[in-house]
């Protein structure tokens, strides 16, 4: 589809290219705001727009001082550390429990399957502000509001739907006769799980884990209510930064986060290609 068909009329040609231009503009709308952040974060001034020096590509207009601030300032490093302490633990809980449940759900005879599924998916559907409000009320009742474990459990609950969805999707393509074959050859259920089933569904588990991780790592509404100053995470710090007038260090932080998302996206793409190749769905 490199061009319009050879027999196209002029009108069709105009439409063909016009449509592509429109699509190009929409792609620009999608991607430009994210890309614009990156050069702005190298601004030598404390402005949020391009300075004349920057537009002239004068090296004096650029500096890494916002990055230096991000990586040395307590106000950013403590939240970053908190995020790194909360997200992996929450991810482990969601992935551990979620994978087990997904395997249970993919059995052929599960009573109340729809109802159970609805409950497990609900953290993704209920608006975050409502989850946050409910958790705030409930966790203060049981004394877990403002504690590390309160935030971890809340984030684990939010990550679970993603694990369930990705792992059940992987299990759809899983050949059940393999576990039967393993059992037939004398492997116990535990051996079968770890030596046969787990390696095959691992891509799904990992991408579910990545979703759970990014959910927790990015989450701000729930931690804002369930957490206290001791659990201030990176998104929380950015949120306060954006609300009260802001230091451009936020752009450096944003650029760091964009790099992390690109990394995650690449990992997921590799996993997806791998599993498609294994299932023989795609040539390359």
């Amino acid at each position: 589809m490199s061009g319009p068909p050879i027999y196209a009329t002029t009108g069709q040609r105009i439409w063909f290219y016009g449509f592509r231009v429109i699509c190009g503009l929409i792609f620009f709308f999608l991607i430009a705001p994210i890309i614009v952040i990156i050069p702005l974060s190298f601004n030598a001034q404390d402005f949020f727009t391009f300075t004349p020096e920057m537009l002239r590509f004068d090296p004096a207009g650029y500096s890494t001082k916002h990055y230096a601030d991000f990586f040395t300032n307590e106000a950013w490093q403590v939240p970053l550390m908190n995020s790194l302490k909360i997200a992996p633990v929450a991810t482990l809980i969601s992935v551990g429990l979620g994978t087990l449940a997904a395997i249970g759900l993919s059995q052929s005879h599960v009573p109340f399957r729809r109802a159970i599924m609805a409950v497990l998916i609900s953290p993704m559907i209920v608006p975050l502000i409502i989850s946050a409000a409910g958790m705030y009320f409930f966790y203060s009742r049981i004394g877990m509001q403002g504690t590390y474990w309160g935030v971890v459990l809340a984030h684990a609950a939010l990550g679970i739907p993603f694990v369930i969805i990705t792992v059940t999707a992987t299990l759809v393509g899983f050949d059940r006769s393999l576990t039967r074959a393993a059992a037939n050859m004398g492997a116990g259920p535990v051996t079968t799980f770890f030596r046969v089933q787990m390696p095959l569904i691992l891509p799904g588990v990992i991408s579910g884990g990545l979703f759970a991780f990014i959910t927790s790592f990015d989450e701000v509404v729930v931690v804002l209510f369930v957490g206290s100053a001791g659990q201030k995470t990176l998104p929380w710090q950015m949120f306060t930064g954006l609300r009260e007038q802001i230091s451009p260090t936020i752009l450096a932080a944003a650029t760091v986060l964009i790099s992390i998302s690109i990394l995650l996206l690449a990992t997921l793409e590799i996993l997806r290609r791998r599993s498609e190749r294994l299932r023989g769905l795609s040539p390359g």
């Binding site: 809980i93 429990l97 979620g98 087990l100 449940a101 395997i103 249970g104 759900l105 059995q107 005879h109 599960v110 009573p111 159970i116 409950v119 497990l120 609900s122 953290p123 209920v126 409502i130 989850s131 409000a133 409910g134 958790m135 009320f137 409930f138 966790y139 009742r141 459990l153 809340a154 684990a156 609950a157 679970i160």
Partner: peptide, 26 residues
């Protein structure tokens, strides 16, 4: 059926306690 439910139960209880209970409380 019981084995499937046993696999699901831990997560179901977890979600009921950490998520559904707060919503009901609200």
């Amino acid at each position: 059926k019981l084995r499937a439910l046993a696999l699901i139960a831990p997560l179901l209880i977890f979600v009921l306690v950490t998520f559904v209970a707060p919503i009901v409380d609200m």
